[in-house]
């Protein structure tokens, strides 16, 4: 049975006026839902093939550092967020023994909760971000690629690299409407133990429906300049940014 008020769908993406078969969903609506859920599940479960990202980093003339967390697989990743927030021993040593250079921004990329998101938009977003930072004369360190990372991982990496800002690009928890959304988190003076209140977040990056890479990069460049100028990040920096999302729930 169709619903006569289906024209209301122009006002919202919500699944309204779907009609019904008895009390249940009509078959086509049911199958649409299953398809969206399957895409979201695949985005979570798929491991991340980082090669494309490595090539994208190197094409920008930057060093790509492939690092790891102690997380063994996607199941452990989901159950142990604490393990995704730190580097494994080998990776930590690798950063500790590097010769220090003066760095403004430590860039980190992780698949987080959506490998699909970072596969689909990671390289393009990285391009626009690096371009924007270079325009502003900021010094970039190596770009760290870390599968199975959580947001706070960037704190440890930023601290080990001696960077003034840590920035992580990370796959967001897939929704039914978008399984390929990226988020960016920025922390000033990164160190282990930074709280979520000390971060700024740019979320919902998934062109064409969500935020574009250009707009995200422009926002990030602006926030970064402000963070460096005022010596802080997080809730004190700017309140009209999109609300930050709790680490535990979203990545």
């Amino acid at each position: 049975m169709n619903d006569s008020w289906h024209t209301l769908r122009r006002y919202t993406q919500a699944r309204i006026a779907q009609g019904r078969s008895g009390c249940g969903l009509p078959t086509s609506s049911l199958l649409d839902f299953q398809l969206a859920h399957a895409a979201a599940r695949d985005a979570v479960r798929q491991p991340w093939a980082i090669d494309r990202c490595v090539r994208a980093v190197e094409a920008l003339g930057l060093e790509a550092l492939s690092l790891a967390t102690p997380v063994a697989d996607r199941v452990q990743y989901l159950q142990r967020p604490d393990q995704g927030r730190r580097l494994d021993e080998a990776s930590r040593e690798r950063l500790e023994t590097r010769s220090r250079e003066a760095i403004d921004v430590a860039l980190v990329i992780s698949n987080g909760l959506s490998s699909t998101a970072v596969d689909r938009h990671g390289p393009a977003l990285l391009n626009t971000i690096v371009e924007a930072y270079r325009r502003n004369g900021l010094r970039l360190g190596p770009v760290c690629l870390v599968p199975n990372g959580r947001v706070a991982l960037a704190d440890e990496i930023g601290a080990l690299l001696g960077a003034r800002l840590a920035v992580i690009i990370v796959g967001e928890r897939p929704g039914l409407s978008a399984a390929d959304s990226l988020g960016i988190y920025l922390t000033y003076a990164p160190r282990i133990g930074n709280t979520d209140a000390e971060r700024n977040c740019i979320s919902n990056i998934h062109p064409p429906e969500g935020l574009s890479c250009q707009d995200a990069a422009a926002k990030l460049a602006h926030l970064s300049q402000e963070a460096l100028r005022r010596g802080l990040s997080g809730v004190g920096l700017k309140d009209d940014m999109p609300k930050w999302l709790p680490d535990s729930t979203f990545t």
Binding site: A14, G24, F33, H37, P174
Partner: peptide, 16 residues
């Protein structure tokens, strides 16, 4: 609507 909360990005129960 359709058990799909488009703001909170999670699935609940629907009117159906």
């Amino acid at each position: 609507p359709g058990a799909d909360d488009i703001m909170l990005a999670y699935q609940s129960t629907s009117f159906h």
